[in-house]
Design a binder for these strands. Structure first.
Lengths: 168, 168
DNA sequence: TGAATATACTAGGACATCCAATGGTTGGGC
DNA sequence: GCCCAACCATTGGATGTCCTAGTATATTCA
């Protein structure tokens, strides 16, 4: 999106907060803004790696999830819950994956309300290849200090549990 | 989006990675996925707080940025650089803010190519009120352990500098 | 000075996400 | 056995982001 800035814009924002009398919330504001920006950078890298495969991150996530199930199939509402996105996003993703021949829709054998998503052979192959690409190009050199990775997992895990993502 | 899951889906994904022989990248994968999910949760909170003001996060960011400048005005390309989003996203946001009477567009006095975004009185007022709401409802109780906030700022700051966001 | 290049904004298209509303399907309570 | 609340997937509309041009203005340099 352009050349590097001479100063960290988030540190700048933090200073603005402190100067306006909001010093008590300046640090959390900076942390939250940093998460927003970090997500943006990581998403761009992932999308760039997936582009040659004709996949977006949303569609990749669904494909990968299916590839990890025993039968390569999953009810749509289950996918929605596990990926933690709205049912409409699943509908959208399945529409496109189906049109690309990577998954099929089939009726649930006993519950007439639910639809099963099934991985095709082409879908399973693409899941493998795109995962290998992500591992090689993104996850193997994420840009974090190795020691920081565990910190992040712990801090964000606590946050997500706190936010009601999961229990335990 | 539903009820809490019984197990952490990201820890689950990490196990899948390890079982498939990708143990060397399983931890970074988990960290990156956790950042994605955390951003999603935080964004939802922010949007929910801004909704009563008729603002989205993208429009709020622009409004807040303008409110911190001396004159309450900024060239569009400057806004694009500081917020680190595509120029077209700025065009889109200014279109809507202008329609809402919160900003005005005016020609740059010396450079005929650039357009200045100017905060209106209504825009300045709304920036103040919506910032107060965010401080009260989101930033004052972010859901992180207080000690973790500084960790996050440091880890993500290093990552962003590494990614070329800024220098120094 | 005049052509080539660089910069700034906008227009249109693709994709993802959320929300609200709709139409089937199930299953528990009476 | 029947009815209605709960559940499931889809559709349509609004918003945001990025990409690919396209138009206009500035700047550079031969």
């Amino acid at each position: 999106m352009g050349t590097p800035l001479s100063r960290d814009p988030i540190a700048e924002a933090r200073r603005n907060w402190e100067e306006h009398g909001w010093a008590d919330v300046a640090a959390p504001m900076a942390a939250i803004t940093a998460i927003m920006r970090t997500q943006q950078i990581l998403l761009a890298r992932i999308e760039s790696t997936l582009k040659p495969f004709g996949l977006t991150f949303a569609r990749y996530e669904l494909l990968a999830l299916l590839s990890f199930t025993r039968k390569g199939s999953l009810p749509m509402n289950k996918a929605s819950a596990l990926l933690q996105v709205h049912p409409t996003s699943i509908t959208n993703a399945v529409d496109r994956l189906e049109r690309a021949g990577l998954v099929d829709r089939s009726p649930h054998p006993t519950d007439g309300r639910t639809t099963l998503i099934e991985l095709t052979t082409a879908g399973r192959t693409l899941a493998k290849r795109s995962t290998a690409a992500l591992n090689a190009e993104v996850f193997s050199a994420p840009g974090f200090d190795p020691g920081d990775v565990d910190h992040l997992i712990r801090i964000l895990g606590a946050f997500r549990r706190n936010a009601g993502d999961f229990e335990e």
